[in-house]
């Protein structure tokens, strides 16, 4: 294998890993705060892409305005989803909330098929992201360079919110002990809503960048990435933001490298995520960065 091919694949892996990381964070944040797997998260990712698509095509907005609008809508949708599908079940058994999440996922997908049409749509070209860049003999789409940079910026902002602000402190408190957080005069509902908003916003960023890289949209495009990013979050240690990032990058890296170096196994690329999940769960059930919780009495 030539060095240039290696670098080519490395950038591919880096941008795919970034996208996985962004989506995985949404799973992990919601799990951290509600102990709930938001099965509709992959569909929120899909909606982010469609919002951007319609803002650019139907509403003829400049792409950057369209992206901001799409992100705001995606975040609002995530918060609405929590309000409608999860909050009424806050005190119900976990299994009810999980069923509600699966139902929400199917609902969004099927309403998507009705509203957006089942036929794939292609995202209009945006020159800034579509140019081919050359580094020596390595050539790639400019979007593959943008994705890791944008991801890094978003991650930095997220970590600052969680660890550097009062809101983040409230989020960490709510994720540890709901009632104790209430006793601190924290508005628990608002904090949970905000968590969904942030997670959905990140899924929106992921969805939009995904369509820049793979410019085809269809209402089921969120299913496979959603599933893989859930796996990424579990591999990294669910509930742990850094873990989700690690899991996302690991998954993206492995997936691309398998396609690149073992082309005969390309058909199994999706299966590797699941194999990795099984292996990690067998060896380290709490995930790579997850800690087995100890309770002091």
């Amino acid at each position: 294998m030539e060095l240039s091919t290696f670098f080519q694949q490395l950038t591919n892996a880096l941008s795919l890993g970034s996208l996985y990381a962004l989506i995985a964070i949404g799973y992990t944040m919601v799990y951290g705060i509600l102990r709930l797997i938001n099965f509709a998260h992959g569909d929120v990712f899909m909606l982010g892409a469609y919002f951007a698509f319609y803002a650019v095509t139907a509403l003829a907005m400049p792409w950057w305005v369209a992206f901001v609008v799409a992100l705001a809508l995606t975040a609002a949708f995530g918060m609405g989803l929590e309000r409608v599908a999860y909050r009424p079940l806050r005190d119900s058994p976990k299994i009810s909330v999980m069923i509600s999440a699966i139902g929400a996922s199917f609902l969004i997908e099927n309403v998507g098929i009705v509203l957006f049409g089942g036929r794939p749509k292609s995202f209009p070209s945006i020159p800034l992201f579509d140019t081919v860049v050359h580094f020596g003999s390595v050539s790639m789409l400019s979007v593959s360079l943008f994705i890791p940079v944008i991801t890094a910026v978003v991650l930095g902002a997220l970590l600052w919110i969680v660890h550097g602000t009062k809101t983040g402190l409230a989020m960490r408190a709510v994720s540890t002990d709901l009632d104790a957080a209430r006793l601190m005069a924290i508005d628990v509902n608002k904090t949970i809503s905000l968590t969904f908003g942030i997670g959905s916003l990140l899924a929106g960023v992921g969805g939009i960048m995904w369509t820049m890289k793979y410019p085809q949209l269809n209402p089921l495009m969120g299913v496979m990435p959603g599933l893989k990013c859930f796996i990424a979050a579990v591999i990294g240690g669910i509930g742990n933001i850094q873990g989700a990032v690690l899991g996302g990058f690991l998954l993206g890296m492995i997936e691309i490298m398998i396609v690149a170096f073992l082309p005969e196994l390309t058909g199994y690329r999706d299966a590797f995520a699941f194999v990795l999940l099984i292996v990690v769960l067998l060896v380290k059930p709490a995930g790579l960065l997850g800690k087995n919780q100890t309770v002091k009495v």
């Binding site: 009062k166 402190l169 409230a170 002990d177 601190m184 005069a185």
Partner: peptide, 23 residues
């Protein structure tokens, strides 16, 4: 100040105090 203390075990002492003053 609830039964069983219910401090936030994964946060620092200082963060726990800041949460007390959240309002």
């Amino acid at each position: 100040a609830p039964e069983g203390r219910r401090i936030f075990p994964n946060l620092t002492t200082e963060e726990n105090l800041e949460l007390g003053a959240f309002a």
